[in-house]
Amino acid sequence: MDIRNKISAIYSLEQLSAGNTVIHRLHPMSKLIATFVFIVTVVSFGRYEFGRLVPFIFFPTILMALSETPYIMLLKRVLIAIPFCLFIGISNLLLEQETAFVIGNTNISFGALSFGVILFRTYLCIMAVLLLAAVTPFNELALQLRRLKIPAVFVLMLEMTYRYIGVLFAEAASMRLAYILRSSGAKGVDIRHAGSFIGCLLLRSFARAERVFSAMKCRGYMIKTTGARRFKLRITDIFYCVLICFFCLLFRFIDAGGKLTVLEKIL
């Protein structure tokens, strides 16, 4: 039952994507382009431009509220990626110790600033991708990737990998259970048997994946089709995409924080 819950957790984002909010109803291409523009803009900022990244927090926040996506679920997934950023950013803390600015009595070094930017940027990008997955079914995304002329074989691999995770988990769970039931009191797979266990798991999950693929083909799946809904592009879709792109470019080229400071001085 535990593993069923884990598989369910893996696909819980996709289950959210079956929702019917205003964001869910948008054309997948519009959401895909908006997310892409958002990520490129966020990544394009300099390593010390923390302040200029702040306005971008509104995109995931507003999207989450409109799509009724639970914040905790997304945050848990973002936290999985954070350790990787910590490893990347930690060296900045050690190498760049000159003071960038002072808050109260605390000196903030350039290293700390760039470390913060890496963390914040990661948070924004992963959140944007997770939100895209939470509001758009995977096969619809795959269809849009094909329309964007991404080679069909790459999209197919992406789809198969995604489906394969569940298959792999299910096979591993049943094998592990069978193993534990025949090994007195063991809590996991003994290192002596790990090699044959993993080999067997690979073969079993490969056979299972073949059956799943056969079932897909039996219902008309070809490499060029995805079983995705066909959407009509509406004015709302174009408006959403243009709006997101506009704000991304606006905050990219105009320092909103700086302008406000100038405005305050004038007033």
Binding site: N139, R211, G227
Partner: peptide, 25 residues
Amino acid sequence: FQNPDDQLFMATIYDDIAFGPRNYG
């Protein structure tokens, strides 16, 4: 198929049922 788990691979049952008709456009 013998094992329905091989045949149900989408997020919801509706999407699984719609998979075939959508593939046929």
